[in-house]
Design a binder for these strands. Structure first.
Lengths: 216, 216
DNA sequence: TATGATTCGGAAGGTCGCCTCCGTTTCATC
DNA sequence: GATGAAACGGAGGCGACCTTCCGAATCATA
């Protein structure tokens, strides 16, 4: 077979269908959900799942890569905002909304980190986020003691409502508003305790590579 | 056997040991982790697990009940604070810390809600939390448009760092500080969008009983 | 529409974890 | 320390899920 040949139409359709159903199934039942169930939902046989993804990890990896692809789609709007502060708002809003709507993401990220600890395609965004924070702080709009990592953690926190089955998706922007009010530069802010983390630590954290609570 | 008789000492010890190891194991691998593994970690045979907990759900229920018991321990300090605002601070700090240190909790709560949808022992705290919010707002310290449910959601969000394997546990109080600064009453706050939720909705959300993202 | 290559479906074997069962051990009491 | 009751341990049957395999179906090309 020609390795560069484009796959047959039914193969491509099944591949996309499997990815889409996997996002839903893994979001509902976790990334250990039975692949037989995935086959049923996607309307294919079990064998077809394994032709497209040799094993569960290959499927998880591909979900991860498509998620990183999603991220690229957000960059123009967020970075092209008319002010640094507006970029901060968009960064929190757009990414938290995306995380909230992608409940399969946290588990997928953790699994990928277990498989390939040094695979960090998100690192390419670090400079952009740092620049966005610096711009908003230079405007005097964003409090001076927050770091880009702090904002990224807030995205994960706000997006964590996605773990709750979608019931809270219409409401979480109230918390976003509170957070944004807490990020505005103004007199009398409480200084943030401790030092901000480095991006590497943030990656390890959000992919759960750090120390476990108290394993044996 | 006498139903009120206190169990033998070895039985009580194994029971506690199993609960403790289950919290760790479920926190690391989810509540579907193999019970054989639990037996091994607790240093008992598989049969002993099933004598203490007829099935996995019984174990999950007991973990839930001990967690609700934990909650009672927090009430005196939080409600007895010298001001309403200080109560708000303590509420967010103590409970978020507890959630963050209990990564098994979210999954346990969801499972219990599936098993007993009307079992809501936490409802007894509603009045206390509402009172705490009212007091802080009457002081003019807490922004007027937040509800007790908003604060409870923030607790879950801040505590969600517990899902990340403990790597972020030393750092999340930076985000707590930002949130508290956003909760302070002051001129120029952005009004919170939409209406606050009722406690019933919050229960259903945090136990993931609401609608799922897009199940078939 | 004929042909060959590609993809599909689902049966079936293997593995892993659930849970039971009962001979053995530990505990409480005398 | 002797005795009965309670609890323990782990082997093993059972079922669910993973994964492979190959005849059948579908697609692309002429």
């Amino acid at each position: 077979m020609n390795p560069a040949a484009s796959p047959r139409r039914d193969a491509r359709r099944n591949h996309e269908r499997l990815l889409a159903e996997a996002r839903i199934l893994f979001g509902e039942r976790g990334i250990e959900a039975p692949l037989d169930e995935l086959a049923t939902r996607a309307g294919v046989g079990a064998g077809t799942v394994y032709r497209h993804f040799p094993n569960r990890d290959a499927l998880v990896r591909e979900l991860y890569d498509t998620a990183v692809g999603d991220l690229h789609g957000f960059a123009p709007e967020i970075l092209g905002a008319e002010s640094g502060w507006r970029s901060v708002e968009l960064y929190l809003e757009r990414l938290a909304a995306w995380v909230a709507e992608s409940p399969y993401l946290p588990a997928v990220m953790r699994r990928v980190a277990e498989l390939d600890p040094d695979y960090k395609p998100g690192a390419e965004f670090e400079d952009a986020i740092n620049g966005l924070v610096a711009r908003a702080q230079a405007e005097g709009a964003l409090r001076a003691d927050v770091t880009a990592v702090d904002l990224s953690v807030l995205v994960d926190m706000l997006g964590s409502v996605g773990q709750y089955g979608g019931a809270y998706l219409p409401y979480w922007r109230r918390q976003l508003t509170i957070v944004l009010d807490g990020l505005r530069a103004r007199p009398g802010l409480t200084p943030l305790p401790g030092d901000g983390q480095a991006f590497d630590e943030f990656h390890d954290m959000s992919h759960q590579k750090g120390p476990r609570p108290a394993a044996d």
